[in-house]
């Protein structure tokens, strides 16, 4: 209720009291920032285990940051901590300019694919303890942006090319003909089962980044796009004509035949999609398809 009293006083007094309050609050806020840092120090003291987070940094817009470098952050380990959690800890306690994409935090949005200790991982799905030796907390975790993509800032890469390749396979359902009126399309449970894994793709780009062929050949459709084509080509609801068209797309020069079955995409896929298997199956379909025209 003190503000009520102030209002009755003269204007200058009111202003100075406001100013005083503002200054006090500003000081309070500066103190709170220090406390955040202090809290990190306390966290570190109290934590049973800590580890070093080594993060790739780059910002083309700020002169002193345009030279790529690594920053290290000491992070207290907490039970269940993921790589994304540790990045957020570093951002919130040490450096608010640390930039990375993240959104759903449950492996649905596909925005936080990262290069962790030399392999593609989804930050939110990768437990810190799974990176150490036999279930322990590792001494150091190195986090870099996805290789073979242009870095926009820190851990953020440009996904444009990846999206273009996805677009190239016409990634939308398109049935030859649809049932009339209130009739339903039919799909067997077996068919749904067959394409189920392929439909789990979250467009994170980990597979493309892991693929040596895609790295060397910018035109190659890449595992994610071919898997997308698989999902539709194998969906019995679409019909035979559409399937032929789809096979033609993936059979072209930069399609399935580029795949050298190195399985790196399958190994890194955070949704466990058997990508290489799907590419192989499409190769077989394409062969079968061509045989028809002998």
């Amino acid at each position: 209720m003190s503000t009520q009293v102030t209002e009755q006083e003269t204007e200058t007094e009111e202003q100075s009291s406001h100013q005083r309050r503002r200054l006090e609050e500003k000081a309070e806020r500066a103190a709170s920032r220090d406390r955040m840092r202090e809290r990190a120090e306390n966290d570190l003291d109290e934590a049973d285990t800590t580890f070093t987070l080594k993060v790739f940094r780059y910002d083309p817009e700020i002169p002193e940051k345009e030279e790529p470098r690594f920053d290290t952050f000491e992070v207290p380990f907490t039970k269940g901590m993921t790589v994304l959690d540790s990045l957020m800890y570093a951002r919130d306690h040490y450096d608010s300019s640390l930039t990375f994409r993240h959104s759903c935090r449950q492996a649905v949005c596909g925005s936080d694919a990262l290069f962790v200790n030399g392999t593609q991982h989804l930050g939110c799905k990768t437990q810190v303890v799974d990176l150490g030796d036999d279930g322990g907390v590792p001494g150091e975790i190195r986090v870099e942006p996805l290789p073979h993509q242009e870095v926009v800032k820190d851990l953020v890469v440009d996904m444009e090319h990846f999206y273009d390749q996805m677009e190239a396979v016409e990634p939308y359902f398109d049935a030859d003909e649809l049932p009339d009126g209130m009739e339903e399309q039919r799909q067997t449970r077996e068919n749904r089962e067959k394409i189920k894994m392929s439909s789990r793709c979250i467009w994170c780009g980990a597979c493309m980044s892991s693929c040596n062929v895609a790295a060397g050949n910018n035109e190659y459709l890449g595992p994610a796009a071919i898997n997308k084509a698989y999902k539709f080509a194998m969906d019995e609801r679409e019909g035979e004509n559409r399937k032929q068209e789809r096979l033609e797309i993936i059979e072209q020069e930069h399609g399935v035949w580029r795949c050298q079955t190195q399985f790196s995409c399958t190994e890194v896929c955070p949704k466990d999609i058997p990508l290489t298997e799907h590419i192989q199956e499409l190769k077989r379909e394409a062969v079968k398809n061509n045989l028809k025209f002998w």
């Binding site: 359902f173 049935a175 209130m182 749904r192």
Partner: peptide, 23 residues
């Protein structure tokens, strides 16, 4: 909704299926 559910199926929605392939 009955019509719109079927329309989603026409657009490729990954519905779980009954024994005989229905939604």
């Amino acid at each position: 909704m009955p019509r719109l559910l079927r329309e989603l199926d026409d657009w490729g929605m990954a519905y779980s299926r009954t024994e005989d392939g229905g939604i």
